[in-house]
Amino acid sequence: MSQSLRQPEILDIARREGRVTVEDLAARFGVTLQTIRRDLADLADAGRLERVHGGAVLPSGTSNIGYNDRRSLNAAAKAAIARACAAEVPEGISLFLNIGTSTEAVARALRTHRGLMVVTNNINVANILAENPECEVVLTGGSLRRADGGLVGTLAADTIRQFKFDLAVIGCSALDRDGDLLDFDIQEVGVSQAILRQSRRSVLVADRSKFARTAPARIASLAEIDTFYTDAAPHVDLAARCRDWGTRVHVADPDQPDR
């Protein structure tokens, strides 16, 4: 495959999987490691990728990647994370699910739970859980973000403050080595902070691609989260901090089949 065909395919793989490695790409395309390194260098010089040890990731910035791209990114990992999270959600509780493709996966995993009251600012979550007759669904108000079906702003936060949730299930756009949960939209950050304040327990659902990304706005620290569901062990420094904070890390197996 020529360079002109190979590099767009490398970008497609990065969008689907969050990162690419030199060895994997060389095996996929049947070329040398040096050839792939040149491709990644070209793409990095063009601002399309950022080089990291052993490969490259999507570039950091102040805006998120497209919602449809995020839906297909690490879909198997998100499904495994969602199954692990849902398996530990008791029936008959109140919970909040916020904006994001990972929380949508959790909603799909909760379609057979009974006696739930789910409050959400995610229209997609509401539509998914509408299939569960044993689940009461409450939508916050707020300004509709057409790109992803999210409801944000003061009205959303005001609705949240009327509740005290047994559990909050939230996602984030990025997670740095200090354990800070990050996002791109300052309005969404304010809503997420209100969710955490109004919840007795909170969990984070975030796949491994979030370790390789960054975003400009801080939501909270993993120190404020009870359980972190992911598909890969965090960096050793962050894992040690989680132990110190009492934040449980649950690593789900994407290869585990649906039950």
Score class of each variant (00 low, 15 high):
V191W: 01
L151M: 11
T103G: 01
N98S: 14
L97V: 09
R208F: 09
A107H: 11
G179Y: 03
A194T: 15
L97K: 09
E104A: 14
A206Y: 08
E131P: 05
I195E: 04
A156M: 04
C135E: 05
D183M: 10
N121I: 00
R201E: 11
E134F: 15
T159C: 14
F211K: 01
A156Q: 07
I123V: 15
T103S: 05
N127P: 00
R145E: 08
A156K: 07
A194Y: 04
E131T: 15
I186G: 08
T154E: 09
A130W: 06
L181K: 07
L129E: 05
V118P: 02
A109R: 03
A157N: 06
N124I: 12
S199N: 05
S102A: 15
G150S: 14
T140H: 04
N127Y: 09
R208Q: 11
S209R: 07
V125K: 11
L196D: 04
K210C: 03
V169I: 15
L116R: 14
I99S: 08
V191M: 02
S202N: 12
G100K: 11
I186A: 15
L175A: 07
K210Y: 10
D180W: 10
V152M: 04
L181P: 10
N124M: 09
K210I: 06
G150H: 03
V138P: 03
R114K: 14
G179R: 01
R146I: 12
G141K: 06
F211E: 01
D180E: 14
R161C: 07
L175R: 02
N98G: 15
S209N: 08
T101K: 00
D148F: 02
S143A: 15
T159E: 12
A206V: 05
R197F: 03
T101A: 00
G100P: 10
S199L: 06
S199R: 04
